[in-house]
């Protein structure tokens, strides 16, 4: 099962390596991991997408909580939540592909943020499936380069991860 784990961690050097080291040492999967400071710069918020049985996820949560730097851990995929990922794609944009690429961008509500005679850079935000669909729709021949941020997640409604 896929899970999205959000955590607050002290914004100190070495904190990220403690988390990533925990996952590699215990053989847990990381599909993606994003981290950045919060509005309170002494804390970072991390979103980890992982897969595993219920037992494994229970252990992951417990082991993360055990890290001295970790302030709070929540499995946000346990209830209603929102996931977003940012993708930048550099695509070939010449000849008839140029118009086609513009149309695709509109259909996916993406934005072209860089234009040259031969290429566009397209910015697209959405959940993983939407980003995958965009890549599928363009096809590998026209893609020059892609970069994805990994998932950011937040609970819906009243659920707040805060100290």
């Amino acid at each position: 099962m896929r899970h999205v784990i959000s955590l607050l961690i002290e914004n100190e050097s070495g904190a990220l390596s403690r988390v990533s080291g925990l996952f590699s040492a215990r053989g847990y999967n990381i599909e993606s991991l994003t981290v950045a400071p919060t509005e309170d710069a002494s804390m970072s918020r991390m979103t980890i997408v992982t897969t595993g049985s219920d037992d494994i996820i229970e252990q992951i949560t417990k082991q993360l909580n055990k890290l001295v730097d970790v302030i709070k851990v929540v499995d946000i995929s346990e209830s209603a939540h929102i996931e977003r990922e940012l993708m930048l794609v550099k695509v070939r944009a010449t000849g008839k592909d140029r118009d086609e690429m513009k149309r695709m961008t509109d259909i996916f509500r993406a934005r072209i943020i860089d234009v040259t005679e031969a290429s566009y850079v397209v910015e697209l935000t959405g959940n993983q499936a939407k980003l995958d669909a965009f890549i599928g729709a363009i096809g590998p021949d026209l893609i020059l380069e892609t970069v994805r941020s990994g998932i950011c997640g937040i609970g819906r409604g009243d659920r707040v991860l805060k100290i």
């Binding site: 037992d55 229970e58 252990q59 417990k62 909580n65 055990k66």
Partner: peptide
């Protein structure tokens, strides 16, 4: 004392 030891 260690929750991660339980049900491991």
């Amino acid at each position: 004392i260690d929750p991660s030891s339980i049900s491991k």
